[in-house]
Amino acid sequence: MTAILSRYMKEHWRPLLLMTAIWILLELPAVYGYQPVFFYPLYYLTGALSGITGGGFLGMICGAAARAIIYVFFEQMIIVLFFSKLPMKERLSSCGTILKDKLIGIIPYFKTLKGLISNDYTVLSAEAAGFGTALILSRLLSGSGLFRHSFVSVVLFIQITRELSARSGLIFSLTKMLVRKLGRKEPETDILSKYLSTHALGYVIAPLLPFRQYIYWIGLAFMVIAEVLKVLSAKKTKQ
């Protein structure tokens, strides 16, 4: 793994270095108290202050993870925009295409939202679990829970909706693998999709909730509901 990572770094160190430099440039003045309004959009889009202002040690770690997720989202665009030899006009249009491709996955997702309403306890359990975990992860990744550090939630929403429409991708595979390990059996793709659908929804709703300081508890409550529904579902199946 180290060898693969070092090989990857050899090929991709330039965009990574650029992004790191941007983070440092935004973070350093901020921790010394200089946070001009003009930088606010940049703080938001780069996640530069996630875990830097508030959140303690856990916030710091999760903030770093959030920045990594944001970097992955922008990596291709950074490469095209700053390191491509194409004319500037083409670079911009390529960036636009990449962004459009990323955003286009959201549209089919909204069409599936109706399908989340179900009478099946197993489906509802998966949905509650997906929503709950998203609330908790969203709060964790923003570092301090502040709305202005929550761009990572938007990124994850876009990524998950995209993967949902393709039924493949990193988060899709990881979730599948995790469910397989936890449940010791192959997860049903439909249940997995329901789980990820509400998971994506959770990322959108979490930063908008009014009682964000209680978000862990709300997330946990959803997990408990999921567990209860799972038990009910098992009982129903036995009958």
Binding site: E27, R67, Q76, A166
Partner: peptide, 29 residues
Amino acid sequence: VLGIAVLAALTAAGAALISSASSGAASAA
């Protein structure tokens, strides 16, 4: 700050490495 930035950069490298193919698979599918 530098330490945190480096930590974020390494995490980013790892995440980008893992996701580079997955994104391709997603777009293909």
